[in-house]
């Protein structure tokens, strides 16, 4: 469904991505791993068609047979939120501080499906339940600052999943959260992707996170694709020194769980 061919992105003279190829099918989860500055987020923004104006992108980002890079803005708007959803890293800043969370989740529903406010609100209640926010009826009229970081990220997921997109991009969705909350968020993501048959692109610098839910893994280093393949193969028999360095950087206990994984 998503197939990227030879994607290159440059900011002025500075290259951010040098020829990425990947494909992702419905119901699968692709883990994208790399250190900060490796071009992970640039890739996510490129797929969303939200690269900053200063960026130049070449190659092809095929989504359902159309190229996102050459699509007119109007068509991209119809695609974003509707067919492709995105979850951002910083739950603290990714929500509009002056808007109630219910309204923020409902916005996409009203925009893309033309739902009435009342219908949208009913759907939002359902979504809040789905991302396991307790006492949704009270929370729906909260402002973001009244929620914890984990709850805000659940709101972020609810926004991204509101229209049941075909592709979900999660850019470091757990990095800003406490370890216990990280696990809950990953579980929610994993369950929903399976349940709804969504393709998930999970971006993280944390191999532990990737190992937990990714079917396939792609390793980026300074904008270059180092290796990709089934997660289990990449982690157990890394084909590249850089991947091995990443693995070695994990705490021993986490490494042990990777080895024990089936």
């Amino acid at each position: 469904m998503l197939s990227i061919r030879n994607l290159r992105v440059t900011f002025g003279e500075r290259p951010a991505l040098n020829g990425i190829d990947l494909s992702l099918a419905r119901g699968r989860t692709l883990g994208v791993v790399g250190e900060s500055g490796s071009g992970k987020s640039v890739m996510a923004l490129a797929v969303m068609g939200l690269l900053p104006r200063t960026a130049r992108a070449t190659g092809r980002i095929g989504f359902d047979g159309r190229d996102i890079l050459t699509m007119p803005e109007r068509d991209l708007c119809a695609l974003r939120g509707n067919r492709i959803g995105m979850i951002f890293q910083e739950p603290m800043t990714a929500l509009n501080p002056a808007m109630r969370i219910g309204a923020q989740i409902a916005e996409g529903l009203i925009l893309h499906q033309g739902l009435s406010r009342r219908d949208a609100r009913a759907k939002v209640m359902h979504l809040l339940d789905m991302v396991r926010i307790p006492r949704a009826a009270e929370r729906i009229d909260s402002f973001p600052h009244e929620l914890s970081g984990g709850q805000r990220q659940r709101v972020g997921i609810a926004i991204a999943l509101a229209l049941t997109p075909d592709l979900l991009i999660a850019d470091e969705p757990t990095t800003a959260l406490d370890v216990t909350v990280q696990a809950q968020i990953l579980d929610i993501l994993d369950d929903l992707v399976a349940e709804l048959g969504i393709a998930l692109m999970l971006i993280s610098h944390d191999l532990g996170v990737i190992a937990r839910i990714a079917d396939d893994t792609l390793v980026l280093y300074r904008g270059t694709l180092i290796e990709q393949g089934p997660t289990e193969r990449v982690l157990r028999r890394p084909g590249h020194d850089y991947t091995r360095t990443l693995l070695d950087a994990l705490p021993p206990r986490v490494r042990a769980t990777l080895r024990d994984a089936p």
Binding site: M48, E73, G81, F88, T93, L95, M99, E107, G108
Partner: peptide, 22 residues
């Protein structure tokens, strides 16, 4: 330049709509 404007655009809001609503 704030993150939540990117969130709004990722929902499918046009540049114009994100500007006036968010």
């Amino acid at each position: 330049a704030e993150d939540f404007i990117r969130t709004a655009r990722a929902k499918g809001l046009s540049r114009h709509r994100a500007l006036w609503r968010h």
